[in-house]
């Protein structure tokens, strides 16, 4: 049931935006401290180039600034130092070349599933084209049967798929996923990861995925970017970048991945119990 690949869809895509490259140059973000406190540095000196169509996983312990970094790329938040560019131009506030799927589905409870996906369509999409695109996306996330349901009538996994479809409706040059499967149960999470692999095959956009799940990062990403803080300096930065070999979908039990998993867990300070 996992990869019933709806792979025959790309012909139907009319105004697909090409995947875009992203560049982060010395990005830092500090938050003003509470009254009388010094400001708090969350991110510093982040240097990263992301190729068009690449899937990059941002991995790190809780609260290390992964989501903050993602918000810089989406333009929902601005860095206090450094610059970000998408396709060579500066990221605008709430940059419309990006689309975000948040950790929570954030669906409008009074709108049907289909109408929620509509919200993601680029401004000025004509009605018929929009409806066709929504139908296509519903099929892609396997929710055609649920189009008219309200968010409260569907499960958490379904809601996350709606959120994903809404983000894809934008035809984003860069798709930003903020722990989109974090709140789902383990089995649903695996299904969703496979779905994302299918989606990327059909709509090969650039994806930046925030996760704290090492296995998820290894299953999905071309590169895993590890964020961490040095004990002697405030502010998280990239501590390591790992290339993940192998075409997707990958064998979850592969020995190569097992070795990478051990490395990543070690880097995150968790004993991997891996037998070397």
């Amino acid at each position: 049931m996992t990869s019933t690949a709806p792979a025959a869809a790309p012909t139907a895509r009319a105004a697909a935006t090409p995947a875009l490259p992203v560049a982060l140059n010395g990005v830092g973000r500090a938050f003003p401290g509470a009254a009388g406190q010094p400001e708090r540095l969350v991110l510093r000196d982040v240097e990263l180039k992301i190729a068009p169509g690449e899937i990059v996983a941002l991995l790190g312990p809780s609260g290390c600034g992964k989501s903050t970094l993602l918000r810089q790329i989406s333009g929902l938040d601005r860095p206090t130092s450094g610059t970000l560019t998408i396709d060579g131009t500066r990221v605008a506030p709430a940059d419309q070349r990006t689309a975000v799927a948040f950790q929570e589905p954030r669906l409008l409870p009074w709108r049907s599933v289909a109408r929620n996906i509509e919200l993601g369509l680029p401004r000025g999409t004509d009605r018929a084209a929009g409806r066709a695109r929504v139908a296509e996306l519903l099929e892609l996330v396997q929710l055609s049967h649920a189009a008219q349901l309200k968010p409260r009538q569907i499960s958490g996994g379904m809601a996350q798929r709606v959120s994903l479809a809404r983000a894809l409706a934008r035809n984003p040059g860069v798709l930003l996923l903020d722990e989109p499967f974090g709140a789902l149960d383990a089995l649903t999470r695996l299904t969703m990861q496979d779905l994302l692999v299918d989606i990327h095959r059909v709509e090969p956009t650039t994806i930046v995925l925030v996760t704290h799940d090492v296995d998820e990062a290894l299953a999905l990403a071309d590169r895993v970017v590890l964020l961490g803080t040095r004990f002697d300096r405030p502010g998280a930065t990239i501590s390591r970048i790992l290339e993940v070999p192998g075409a997707r979908p990958r064998d979850r039990a592969s020995t190569v991945l097992a070795r990478l998993r051990a490395q990543l867990l070690d880097a995150l300070g968790v004993p991997s119990h891996h037998d070397r």
Binding site: R29, G65, K66, D77, Q103, E104
Partner: peptide, 17 residues
């Protein structure tokens, strides 16, 4: 009331602005 029953995203709260 809209996100009732869903886990609030508190993980990166201080940094999420």
């Amino acid at each position: 009331s809209t996100t009732e029953g869903r886990e609030p995203a508190s993980r990166d709260l201080p940094s999420s602005g």
